[in-house]
Computed example of a mutant assay.
Amino acid sequence: MQHAKKISKRTRVVTGTTLAAAIALGGFGAYSASAADSEPAAQAAAAKPAAAKAGNTFESKHLTVGAATDAAEAVLKAAKKENQKVSVAVVDRNGNTIVELRGDGAGPQSPESAVKKAYTAVSWNAPTSELTKRLESTPNLKDIPGTLFLAGGAPVAADNAPIAGIGVAGAPSGDLDEKFAQAGVAELG
């Protein structure tokens, strides 16, 4: 008989503890549920972007991927007419590559050189053949990362502001590279 009372007492303790834990967890769950209900409103408020004050922003023009691709293809077509194997790159105003095409048979160095020429042309809003002349008075210009002061880069402008650069590399001379880059600029007309 006493043995039954011990079990009964243990059972009551275990049952009581389990019940207390369930009540505590239930209360926590209810608290969590009410907190979760208020979270979407708080998240929505936090996710709403802050509006910039008037005068703190500006707009800029950018080439579309389609236009950049058309320009790059015009470059390859012009080079092919003269049996030249080149690569072409079109970068945006910030120097980010929009399109890069390696022509059939173009050398392994040409894609990287084309990107650097395009970047250089848009950075200074000038053909890279003109920029090479500046090295005579300022030779450390060539040390600027990402640039290449060789003929073959041409800027693209809209409303007298640079919006892109076209770089070409792989022809036997920079003059030819730049001639093909100008064919890309002309395509954008």
Rank of each mutant, 00 (worst) to 15 (best):
T132Q: 15
G103D: 05
A78Y: 00
A74L: 15
A46I: 10
A50L: 05
S38D: 09
L19E: 11
A46E: 11
G95H: 06
Q109W: 05
V115S: 09
L101R: 15
I23R: 02
P111S: 03
R93Q: 03
A51F: 11
A33V: 06
F28G: 07
W124Q: 12
V90N: 04
Q109P: 02
D92F: 02
A35C: 03
L63Q: 05
T97L: 00
E100G: 07
L63Y: 04
G16V: 08
T17G: 14
Y31C: 12
R134E: 12
A47F: 00
V122D: 10
H62C: 09
A35V: 03
P108T: 07
K85R: 13
V13C: 08
R12G: 12
V13E: 07
V86I: 04
H62W: 13
G95E: 05
I98L: 14
A41N: 07
A106F: 04
R93I: 02
A35H: 02
N56Y: 15
S34Y: 13
A30L: 14
T97P: 00
G66R: 11
T57H: 10
A45G: 01
P108K: 06
A24W: 11
E59F: 12
A51T: 15
K48D: 02
G27N: 05
V65D: 14
G55V: 09
A68Y: 03
T120K: 06
H3S: 07
K117D: 02
A68S: 07
A47L: 02
H62T: 13
K80F: 06
A72W: 12
S38L: 07
A106M: 03
Q43V: 04
